[in-house]
Nucleic acid binder design. Structure first.
Lengths: 142, 142
DNA sequence: TTTTATTGTTTGCACATACAAATATAATGG
DNA sequence: CCATTATATTTGTATGTGCAAACAATAAAA
C-alpha cells in the first residue's frame, strides 16, 4: 500500500509537517510583517549585535548564500545593516529593527502556544527537541 | 538564549530536519534520475493507473497547482501521460515510466535503511508515523 | 432550460532555499 | 616577502512549492 510507503518515510512525513507548520508560523508571524525565518534571523541579531553571517548560518542551519539573501532583504526593509570587517560582514539591527523585538517575541509565543494547544505543551516542546537531535544525528553520523 | 528559542520551536526544528532528510533522499533517489517527490508521485500512479490529480494531491498532501507542475515534468520526461476525462485529468504511466518501478522501490529501501541505521529502524518508522499524525492534528484541529 | 454554484485543473507570479562558481580577504609556508 | 591555501561572502542559476485568479466542465436551482 502506498499509504504505508508514505507514512513510513521520514522524508515524506517531515516535509509534509514542514508545510503544515510553516503555514501556521507564517500566519502567526504575519503580525510582525515578516516571514518566520526572517524573524528568527532578527532574533539571532538581537542576541548578538555584530554577529557574522557565518555564525548566523550555523545557528539557523542555513547555507551562506541563503543568509546573504535574507540579510539583503532585511536591509532593504531597513531592519538591519552590515559593516564589512575584513572578509566578514557583521550584522547589526537598526532602530527600526529593534522596535520589532517585542512583537516578534509575541509572535513566537503565539505560535508555540497555538500548536501547544493541539499537541500538548510538553509534547510540542519534546517533539521539537527530538527533531533537533535527529537532525544532528543524521547530519553528523553520515 | 536563542538556542532555546530555536530548539523549542517546532517550525524551526521541522524545517531543519526537512532540509537534512531531503538532501539524504535526493542523494538516494539520484539512482532513479528523479527527485524524491517525483518518485513518490510515480509510486502513487503505479498503485492506481488512471488516478486523478486531485487524488494525487490528497495522497501526497500537495496543492493542485503543484501536482500539475510535477506531472508536467514527468510527462516531459516521458514517464507519464494524462488522459482528460471531463474536467479531470487522469494519469497513467508509460512503458518508460513502468520500467522505473523496481529502481524506485530500491531507492526507497535504501533511504529507509540509511536513516534506519542511524536512528534505529524501529525508531525511524515510529518517528515517521508520529510526524504523520502530528501533521493531521495540526491541519485539522485548527 | 437557462442561470448559478461547485469542482478540478491550469496559469501567472512569488518566495525560500540550495549548489557551484566567482570574488575578496586573510593566513601560512617557502 | 611572495605564492599558495584557506575562509567568508556574493552572484548566477535552478528547483520545489504555494497562493490567487482564470478557466473549463459538471451539477443544482430557478
Amino acid at each position: 500500500m502506498l499509504n504505508t510507503y508514505i507514512k513510513e518515510c521520514l522524508y515524506f512525513t517531515t516535509n509534509r509537517l514542514s508545510r503544515v507548520i510553516t503555514k501556521m508560523a507564517e500566519d502567526e508571524f504575519a503580525a510582525s510583517g515578516l516571514s518566520p525565518t526572517y524573524a528568527y534571523l532578527l532574533m539571532a541579531v538581537y542576541e548578538k549585535e555584530g554577529i557574522s553571517q557565518k555564525e548566523l548560518g550555523e545557528i539557523l542551519h542555513l547555507q551562506p548564500s541563503t543568509v546573504t539573501r535574507l540579510i539583503e532583504k532585511l536591509a532593504v526593509k531597513g531592519l538591519v545593516y552590515n559593516r564589512v570587517e575584513g572578509r566578514m560582514s557583521l550584522i547589526y539591527t537598526t532602530d527600526k529593527g529593534k522596535a520589532l523585538e517585542d512583537v516578534i517575541h509575541e509572535c513566537w509565543n503565539h505560535l508555540r502556544s497555538r500548536y501547544g494547544a493541539i499537541l500538548g505543551n510538553a509534547e510540542g516542546d519534546e517533539l521539537s527537541l527530538r527533531l533537533y537531535e535527529v537532525s544532528d544525528q543524521l547530519e553528523n553520523k553520515d
